[in-house]
Design a protein around this nucleic acid. Structure first.
Lengths: 336, 336
DNA sequence: CTGAAAGCGCTTACAG
DNA sequence: CTGAAAGCGCTTACAG
């Protein structure tokens, strides 16, 4: 009698069984419209007992909704980002699930939005979360033109986009300030892709820290676009060493990983000979000796907040256009 | 005139515009049913020109399909696995997209299937891809009971489940054999979670390599469940060293990362004092000195094959129940 | 408080 | 070869 392939029971079935109309059943479930408390309880009990679950697809069709969200993840990433995206996704799906939404994933390269376009033109989702922003962002332009509900994880200068982000600028400023206070003044900055908004924010924070003490960073020691591979990093590190840098600040752990390897190869000791810190932490460096100073962000929370915000937008509530979440500076041996 | 918020045009609109029935339009698009070539072309031209795209949700409802797949990703993972899952997902969504399917993601802990259950009972997907298998697998049991179409990435002993996997057993056997041929006979094996099918396969391959040369591994140097953190690894490594192991074989790069750190701390040189190799490669170890020998698998291909197989099942085609993809042994400095 | 009916945007026997 | 009609499983004005 259990699990007997009991085919999908529909709202009509429960209406028949209870001798009421489909309308009534629908109302009992949704809680919308006037309905007698007793009647309501009867159908609730029945569907509970018979394990009835409304077909969300049909419901969606009737309401012109899908109860799906789309999380778009960049097609180009390195393993450090990966962990970040994964955590975000976790947060997103967690809070989506609570509201009976599901999350559809779209992996898009910056140069090719077609996966996203397909999802939109197929009317598969009610809203979109962009998991990375670019300075020039074709995804944002596309979604605005399509008038879709969406929120970005990461900041942007495009007007009228709802965004949630960590305060990368402040975080980087704080870390840089600490380093400066420790009297490491010749800091080399190994930055990531200039086209990513987040890297610009980090750079900004770095500069502000210097400004605050009335000094200027050595511009010739600011190396952007270092995430192109270990070769770019190697050149930058060598140049920084020639210029007598006393500290190397890396935009993320992928870069930091390369840096640490290079220093080790050249028998340059951290932190004795030079200090190293990273603007983004991951599990990647956890086995490094010495342990490395970095900024720490809660990606999962970011996903949760982004998702909740999007859900609010879909439901027509008003939302805060720019949320900034906090961060931590984690000081370790590499900057002693 | 462009992008003028031209609200969703429906099949009825195009039927009206063309003076034909909705039936005809539907047939022209799907290619099913008899229809005049000329008529067909007319509607095709029209929808092309007017950028009409059928509402997949409505289509799905009429056909009792969703054109969605679900990829279930484990909720517990470490960063090494992560890269694997990401690559898989890439492959999955890539091949799903070609068939106009989208992929919905569900992150499930082994102990809590509720995200998956929700998706199933909401009729949100036509099939499921399980991205990891366990020896005792509640997900498989659940899906079989629900009579859903699904395929697993990773092997399983459960009967009648369609699975695609890399030949972990053979791969590990081959790597172990090479090590044995190099006369490293006292190999310590640091294994992962015994509950994961893949780790049992690896262990199996390890044993078979010994058998083949008529010898036996030192059972006291087989340490399973090492992925619980660095402490478990540390104990195992120290014990292995006491037992004069000449080589440490790690089930994956997370474990390998810990091992390499521990050896470095204790000033034990690789490969001079002891050899190290990993059964699973990732970007995680790419900066290690020395470079480390490992097995290499193409996770993306795995995703593609799994997805194509699932799609075939959904369309009622018969599929190969167990596909095994190939691998590579990548010899590097750590086992010289 | 409850129900009959129309509608969401498609598909698909069934006629012609 | 083409169309009118019923149906997929819901929701929601509109009446009563």
């Amino acid at each position: 009698m259990e699990g007997e392939g009991q085919e999908k029971i529909t709202i009509a079935d429960v209406a028949d069984a209870l001798g009421v109309s489909k309308t009534t059943v629908s109302r009992a479930i949704s809680g919308k419209g006037r309905i007698g408390a007793a009647t309501r309880q009867r159908v609730l009990d029945y569907i509970e007992a018979h394990d009835y679950k409304p077909n969300v697809i049909a419901k969606g069709l009737a309401q012109s909704k899908t109860y799906n969200l789309c999380a778009v993840m960049p097609g180009e990433y390195d393993i450090v980002d990966l962990n970040f995206f994964q955590e975000c996704l976790f947060g997103i799906q967690e809070t989506a699930g609570v509201m009976e939404y599901d999350v559809l994933i779209s992996i898009c390269k910056r140069s090719d939005l077609s996966p996203l376009e397909r999802i939109i033109s197929n009317h598969k989702v009610d809203g979109i979360i962009l998991m990375r922003t670019y300075m020039e962002d074709p995804q944002i332009e596309f979604l605005q033109q399509k008038k879709m509900h969406f929120v970005t994880i990461g900041s942007t200068l495009y007007p009228d986009v709802v965004q949630v982000d960590h305060s990368h600028k402040n975080a980087c400023k704080e870390l840089t300030s600490i380093l400066l206070m420790k009297q490491f003044k010749r800091i080399a900055l190994l930055g990531g892709d200039e086209g990513h908004f987040v890297n610009q924010s980090r750079l900004y924070g770095f500069r502000e820290a210097y400004e605050e003490i009335g000094e200027k960073p050595d511009e010739s020691m600011i190396y952007m676009n270092c995430d192109g591979g270990s070769y770019a990093v190697e050149r930058s590190v060598n140049e920084a060493l020639e210029k007598k840098a006393d500290c190397i600040l890396c935009m993320d752990d992928a870069v930091a990983g390369h840096v640490l390897r290079i220093l080790r190869e050249e028998h340059i000791k951290v932190p004795e000979d030079i200090r190293v810190a990273s603007f983004y932490n991951s599990m990647m460096l956890e086995n490094n000796i010495p342990s490395v100073t970095s900024l720490s962000f809660d990606a999962r929370e970011l996903g949760q907040v982004a998702c909740r915000t999007l859900l609010d937008m879909i439901e027509g509530k008003s939302v805060e256009p720019c949320r900034l979440l906090s961060y931590e500076v984690v000081l370790k041996e590499s900057t002693k």
